[in-house]
Design a protein around this nucleic acid. Sequence first.
DNA 1: ATTGGGAATGTAAGCGCATACAGTAGACGT
DNA 2: ACGTCTACTGTATGCGCTTACATTCCCAAT
Lengths: 365, 365
Amino acid sequence: MKAATVYDVAAHAGVSIATVSRVLRRPDDVRASTRARVLSSVRELGYVPSASARSLAARRTGVLGLFFPSIDDEDDRAEAVFEQDTLARIVVDIPDTGEVRPPNLYFDEVLRGSEREAWRHGFALMVGVGRGSDPATMVNDIAGRVDGMAVLARSVPDDLLDHVSRRIPVVLIAGPRRGDDFDHVSVSNTEGMRALTEHLLDRHRVTAPVYVAGPSDSPDDAERYLGFRQALAAAGIDPDALPVLRGNFSRVDARAIAAELVTAGDLPRALVCGNDQMALGILDVLGPAGVRVPDDVIVTGFDGIEAGRLSSPRLTTVHQPMADLGRAAMRAMLSRLEHPDQPPITARLPVKVLLRESSEGAPGA
Amino acid sequence: MKAATVYDVAAHAGVSIATVSRVLRRPDDVRASTRARVLSSVRELGYVPSASARSLAARRTGVLGLFFPSIDDEDDRAEAVFEQDTLARIVVDIPDTGEVRPPNLYFDEVLRGSEREAWRHGFALMVGVGRGSDPATMVNDIAGRVDGMAVLARSVPDDLLDHVSRRIPVVLIAGPRRGDDFDHVSVSNTEGMRALTEHLLDRHRVTAPVYVAGPSDSPDDAERYLGFRQALAAAGIDPDALPVLRGNFSRVDARAIAAELVTAGDLPRALVCGNDQMALGILDVLGPAGVRVPDDVIVTGFDGIEAGRLSSPRLTTVHQPMADLGRAAMRAMLSRLEHPDQPPITARLPVKVLLRESSEGAPGA
DNA sequence: ATTGGGAATGTAAGCGCATACAGTAGACGT
DNA sequence: ACGTCTACTGTATGCGCTTACATTCCCAAT
């Protein structure tokens, strides 16, 4: 059952392969009667054009790429449950109080936005998730298949980016700019954190907020911390006089940090976290420890993930438009494809400060 | 800046294109010294092989496809925020009490699992989300680019499936089998719901649970309802004597249903919902209305989404392994690619009944 | 009936790579 | 020195499709 080709269809319909191709690509160039004949042959033969051949001939693939760094905790069961015609029935009692798998909303959202935007412009989307080993193979592989590629900050080494970008346009998502070579899409980390901090300073008279930082190599965190400092400086407070707690963006890690603060007994008036996960981790500890939020301690996050809306108290945070990030990345790429020589694009998406109970107290209060 | 090709590399390294190709595909067939020379040319020219050409010549693409029906609420702002070098600073007060966007965990998870499994076997993954208009174009397009394709139940009309499957193997995810033509991967909907229902009947002495159904054309819901009925029948209860409430799997819709029940004043002892979203919608209404869960009414869901673990009370539900669904689908496809003539695969993944507070009462109680 | 001209179709040349097959250079044996 | 292998490398073809260009149609206008 070899797959049918243009030749088969052409023969079957009694036309040349060019006509078959036209029927599929520019139907109006073909007389209605022949078109109908060809289409019926297509149907009859189960013909599906080979995108490989088409891309090769047309010099474009119609696919955009998206590359993520690996984040999902390598679930590496070699053999997934499968092949067993099992019907399950395992009843588990009141389980999983902790977090099972922090659903990686961030990537999911970016992906969704990307897919959507790519599709709107007639492109398919190919995703790659950088697994630990060697991104080179994968990135190269994807790069060979697409017309353009968006890459999450720091998921790909610079030299690889340079290499790949000689073939196709590359758009960087989040993180810092990389020289002036690439198009770049990010959110207003600094401005958002500054606005939030200013709010705490002005409205709540906080004088010595403590920043709970993410990994020291996170450019996003660096930008956020910068906003934090700017707000302090603008209020006449010396940022360097305040301690900074270093976390790793994870919830469990933040719990440890909070636990330490509680036992040490020196809780600041406000804990400003570099992301939501950490803020949630802190809430996990503070509540049970008898520390009231926000009465005793104000806690804020950054990202605007769903879980922060479901926590109690609900988390004050800065929401970044993750899906829009993906969309903007795709649009930047498409724009670059159309105008290869335009100057580098820099899109910076606005964020929203969401004031909720973890800083404001009961709703309506 | 035309992209480099094998020819360029060959010329630059002083070898033939065959050797260049060998260096990339079967390095051991080339003398170490020439290999090094070629590789350095590759680097110098920024050569990235064209997957289109390779796929065409090799007669396989190395890509697997995954097709979803459209679920995300068409966020159709024609122009996403973008291009404006805006720095945002908009402060919003205590917002969004309702749900902002039900994160579509289900697809996200299936996608994640698929990507993972595909990658493990050296394949890239291409995703397509069926947008309202006409799936044919998109499915055909994807089918032309991949070696095999997994499709979510009912996202593609039968004739299209038949057509496409003449070119590549197709695996169906979830839903009912389609004749005996396709490989099929699903979860134990019936068994899971039956186990859950039996638990309610046996352990909680519920005698007349009411089923809150999904859309009548949902095969998943049908399977679940069947399990519900089986449990009743096995307990000597006539399923047909009990009313069934019809929802559409959405949270808002379920709220309306619950509201009606509350005002009518005839709440059953237990509401068994076809999915988690609806169960959550019911919880949304019951709590504020003064109805105690589970003391007055037991509420259960199906799916095991994250939000059900974060609700209060936490939701008793049946967890289906969504990521594994994706993985299993990919494996089925790969298996089919290796053994085209093997009999149709049917994988049925086990589920887990998770008993939580919405049926059991306070933890530890 | 002729002719001009646009519309419809056919012809043929790649697109960039993999690979069967042919060729070439040493290495080794006699 | 010459034949024989073995290990590499080059030649040439085709994968299935698009598309510029050439050719043929068809019909209105003369």
